[in-house]
Amino acid sequence: TTTITTTNEEDARRIATEWKNKGYTVHVEKRGTTFRIEVR
């Protein structure tokens, strides 16, 4: 599992989409101002 964190919502969406397009399972969680993107 790879975890990526960013405070930028646009980055979070872009990163999540990129990983999904590669065939990975992506889970995005917002904690306060931080977005945690888990890639499996």
Score class of each variant (00 low, 15 high):
T33R: 09
G23R: 02
V26S: 01
K30N: 06
T34Y: 13
T6V: 14
T17K: 10
T2R: 13
V28R: 01
R40V: 13
T17I: 12
R40F: 14
I37H: 00
R40A: 11
T3L: 14
V28A: 03
E38P: 00
G32L: 04
R40W: 15
R13Q: 12
K30S: 06
N8D: 11
I4Q: 04
E9C: 05
K30H: 08
K30A: 06
V39K: 02
T3S: 08
G23N: 03
W19I: 03
T2M: 15
N8M: 05
V39Y: 04
R36S: 11
V28M: 08
R40K: 13
R40S: 15
V26A: 04
E29P: 00
T2I: 15
T33P: 13
R36D: 07
T25Y: 12
R31F: 14
T3P: 04
T1V: 15
E10G: 08
Y24S: 02
N21L: 13
R40D: 08
K22G: 04
A12I: 03
E29Y: 13
N8Y: 06
K30G: 04
T33M: 12
V28Q: 03
T2G: 06
A16T: 06
R14Y: 05
A16E: 09
R13P: 01
H27T: 14
K22T: 03
D11G: 04
T34A: 09
I15Y: 05
T17H: 10
V26Y: 01
V39C: 05
T33V: 11
A12P: 00
K20M: 14
D11Y: 10
T7P: 07
F35C: 03
E18G: 05
I37K: 00
N21T: 08
E29A: 08
R14M: 08
H27G: 04
R36L: 15
G32N: 05
I37V: 10
Y24T: 01
D11K: 06
D11C: 09
I4R: 03
V39G: 02
T5Y: 15
T6C: 06
T1H: 12
K20S: 11
G32P: 03
T2V: 14
T25I: 14
N8K: 06
R31S: 13
N8C: 05
H27L: 12
T1Q: 10
G32T: 03
I4S: 02
E18R: 07
D11V: 10
N21P: 00
T2P: 06
E29W: 11
E38V: 15
N8A: 05
I4V: 07
T25Q: 13
E29N: 06
T5Q: 08
T6L: 07
T33K: 11
K22M: 10
T17G: 09
I4T: 03
T6I: 07
A12E: 01
R14V: 06
T34Q: 12
A16D: 01
Y24P: 00
T2H: 14
K30P: 04
V39L: 08
W19M: 07
K20D: 04
I4H: 06
G32W: 03
T3A: 07
R40I: 14
T25N: 10
V26M: 01
G23S: 02
V26L: 02
E9M: 08
E18K: 08
Y24M: 04
T25G: 05
H27P: 00
T5A: 05
R14E: 06
V39R: 03
T3K: 05
A16F: 07
T7W: 10
T25S: 11
I15P: 00
W19Y: 11
K22H: 06
E29H: 10
N8W: 05
R36H: 15
E9T: 04
G23L: 02
I37Q: 00
E10N: 09
N21Q: 11
T1W: 15
E38G: 04
I4W: 12
W19N: 02
T17S: 12
H27D: 06
K30R: 11
E10C: 07
R14H: 06
G32F: 04
G23C: 03
F35T: 03
D11T: 10
K30C: 05
N21R: 11
R31P: 02
T2F: 15
T34V: 14
A12D: 00
V26C: 00
R13I: 14
T3D: 04
Y24G: 02
T1R: 06
T7N: 13
T6A: 12
K22I: 05
T25K: 10
T34H: 12
D11P: 00
N8G: 05
T1C: 09
R40H: 13
T7Q: 12
R40L: 13
W19D: 00
H27Y: 12
T6W: 02
T1P: 10
E10K: 09
T7K: 09
T3F: 14
I37L: 05
K20E: 13
K20N: 06
I37T: 01
V39Q: 02
E18Q: 08
V28D: 00
E18V: 09
T7V: 08
R14F: 06
K22W: 06
K20H: 10
R36M: 14
Y24Q: 02
V28L: 07
T2C: 08
T7Y: 12
V26W: 00
R13H: 13
T3V: 15
H27I: 14
I15H: 03
R14D: 05
E38L: 13
V39N: 01
E9L: 10
A16H: 03
D11L: 11
T6F: 05
T25M: 11
W19S: 02
T5F: 15
G32A: 05
K20W: 08
I15L: 07
R31G: 05
E10Y: 09
D11A: 10
T1K: 09
T33L: 12
A12H: 02
N8Q: 05
N21V: 08
I4M: 08
E10V: 09
T34L: 14
